[in-house]
Computed example of a mutant assay.
Amino acid sequence: MDWPRGRAGRGRSRDRGRPVGAAGGDLGAPQDSKACSPSVDIDSFSDALDKTSFENTFVGNFSALAFDTDGDLLALGDRSSLFTLDPRTKQPTGLVPLADENGRPLDSEGIVVDGDDTRWIASEVEPSVRRYGPDGTFLGQLPVPDALRVAPVGRATTNLTFEGLSLQPDARTLIASMEGGLSGDDADVRRFQTWTRNNPAKEFVLGPQFAYRADSGLDISEITPIPDGRLLVVERGFAKGVGNTIHLALADPGHADDVSGVENVTARTGVRFAEKTVLADLAQCPTLGATAKQPQLNPLLDNIEGAVVTGADGHRQLEVLLVSDDNENAAQITRFYSLRVTPPKKL
């Protein structure tokens, strides 16, 4: 994998197929009953876990999805709960409470499972990336550059730091995505921080950063890898009285510049961004009979925060599962979405 190592200062990203308008435009979706765009189809959705409980714990607040080494589905709640779900029925089968190294609750937003079944979990408070055993035992944490920390220590905004977490297929690169931007960067710039290791048996060390441009008015709620190493990116926004905007995109950071030493990433800086391909505006999906508890451009939509690839037909078509975070709010829904994604060929 050719991860960013080059000096910043040349080239620009290519952004193909951007939707029109902040609320989503016409991506040319064919007139098919399940097509959201030429690249994305929605097969089904499920609200079966909405406003339910398990072991006296509220089931919801889901911010991330992953699979453990046994093939069970993990759903991370952002209020210190890690649920194990049956991958077929999505019903809870286990629950592990989480806490930081001082026993305090976590605002847990991203999760990946390492080859030894330990869990890397990102929090957007500091931000941080901590490692846990399967039973929730705290095992350590990774260094984070000061610039990515919440002001006044760093240049990030409260609740807009590490929202997505991804481990690349070769298990040598861990990536955390910033939900929002840093002060001094262009408003649409989102930084992705990496940690690297020479082989999966080694410890991670701080790696390069690369930059990505989000669609206007949207933040990044999740990243998850596809088999060829590109990242599926969930971009999300919300407007009162309008509802959620959810875009799916691919990011290819293979030739992006390392911007860890660039104080302000702007159009004038001239750095090479991760190449971006927009796949779909989910407002263009068929409703499939879904209903919403608050205004939405499409009643299927809610606050989507989690994503995981559940199957792949080579590199031709992916099965992707999304989940929304209901924030324990009566006007929101815990909803799973089953998609089929056909990514363009990697250049």
Rank of each mutant, 00 (worst) to 15 (best):
R5S: 12
R7A: 15
R7P: 01
R12P: 12
R16L: 08
A22Q: 03
D26A: 06
S33H: 11
K34L: 08
P38F: 03
S39Q: 15
D43V: 07
S46T: 13
D47Y: 12
L49C: 12
T52N: 10
E55P: 06
N56D: 14
N56Q: 11
V59Y: 14
V59S: 09
N61E: 13
F62I: 06
A66T: 02
T69C: 01
D72Y: 13
S81F: 11
L85T: 06
R88E: 06
L95A: 11
P97K: 04
P97I: 13
A99T: 03
G103Y: 00
G103T: 09
P105R: 02
S108Y: 07
E109M: 13
V112S: 09
D114A: 07
G115Q: 04
D116I: 05
R119T: 05
E126A: 08
P127K: 05
P127W: 01
R130I: 03
Y132V: 12
P134Y: 00
P134G: 00
D135K: 04
L142R: 00
P143N: 00
V144Y: 06
L148A: 02
A156Y: 02
A156S: 15
S166V: 13
L167N: 04
L167C: 02
A171S: 14
T173V: 10
T173H: 10
A176R: 08
S177T: 13
M178Q: 10
G184P: 08
D185S: 02
D185A: 04
D188Q: 06
D188K: 03
R191T: 06
F192Q: 07
Q193I: 02
W195F: 02
T196W: 07
N199L: 14
P200T: 10
P200Y: 09
F204I: 07
V205E: 08
L206M: 11
Y212N: 09
D215G: 05
D215N: 13
I226G: 01
R230G: 06
V233P: 08
V233I: 13
R236S: 08
V242A: 05
T245R: 12
A249Y: 09
H255V: 14
V265Y: 10
R268S: 15
R272H: 10
F273A: 13
F273M: 15
A274Q: 13
L279H: 13
A283I: 04
A283Y: 02
C285A: 02
T291G: 10
A292Y: 01
P299D: 07
D302C: 06
G306V: 09
A307R: 04
T310F: 13
G311Q: 01
A312V: 08
V320Y: 12
L322M: 01
A330G: 14
T334I: 03
F336N: 08
R340Y: 12
